[in-house]
Design a protein around this nucleic acid. Structure first.
Lengths: 148, 148
DNA sequence: ACTCTAATTGAAAAACATTCTCATTTGACA
DNA sequence: TGTCAAATGAGAATGTTTTTCAATTAGAGT
């Protein structure tokens, strides 16, 4: 590999990739770098632009392939917005939920998981076995609240 | 309007449309009919096929336009699947959460809202004001569990 | 029922998003 | 350093959603 973005997140990504027998390529580390330093949710196009700025060139297909891999690894989360769009954000691990600012698309960790507190009585009454869940909170971060 | 699918859901949709000054067209009622009778989450293509079967012809653009309207009205929900795909399902009202069977994409109501029980201390500590949320549970329904 | 009008529609084009193919390059390991 | 499978970039192909616009239709008022 040519470049090293030398921060904790990148070496974390490197470890996860190695565990799965995947290569730590410049492009993959650049995607992590872009996502992590932005602190917010980015569209595929924005990630592509960020990686191009970092590396000069980058194929869009590689960005898609990389995001898929990192989503499987749990290091990147796909978030959905009320307007129907979606984006990707760096995530500290598989079981983290996120709050998204609807104005700036900033992403914040939400450490509690209300679903874990839940008993699934009403689910089981319908014969349903819950195996996973997806939660996302929407709102406004303090910076965007000030401006408004 | 030409056709009437004469069931509770369609007259509910009719009322909501009238409230907003929108017309109760054959196509719109057909979308509700298809979604409601299927009892599961359908892709845009499946809804399009269902409406065509009912009406003979139907423009795809109309399906998209109709789903947007009903999503705004809260009568239809867009659901996201772990594989990255998405679909639409009939929803009894704005604040209902859903369980989705990952095998058959069947949709079941989940009446409790764990997020409502939550105090937002950890959100507020980060200066974040929660305004809305999205929850979806994944699992297996009893029919799919039997087969497997 | 009949007319009027703005809202809605279908069809095709346009715009946008994602995946695939394949020749070339690169990271990891010896 | 050399080797080789894995990964990449470029562009084609495919898939999805939105836009445009002339024709049609629902609904309100006769």
């Amino acid at each position: 590999m040519i470049k090293d973005f030398e921060c904790v997140q990148e070496s974390y990504a490197r470890d996860l990739l190695r565990e799965k027998g995947l290569k730590s390529t410049t492009q993959r580390l650049a995607v992590i770098h872009v996502l992590h330093t932005s602190g917010k949710s980015l569209s595929v196009g924005e990630i592509h632009d960020g990686v191009k700025k970092l590396l000069g060139v980058a194929g869009l297909a590689t960005i898609y392939r990389t995001l898929d891999i990192f989503e499987d690894l749990g290091i990147v989360k796909r978030l959905h917005f009320p307007d129907g769009g979606h984006g990707y954000a760096f995530s500290r691990g598989r079981h983290f939920h996120h709050m998204v600012c609807v104005d700036c698309r900033g992403v914040f960790d939400f450490p509690e998981c209300p679903v874990e507190w839940l008993d699934y009585a009403s689910a089981e009454k319908q014969g349903f076995r819950v195996k996973d869940h997806f939660i996302q909170l929407f709102g406004q971060c303090d910076k965007c609240a000030e401006v408004a």
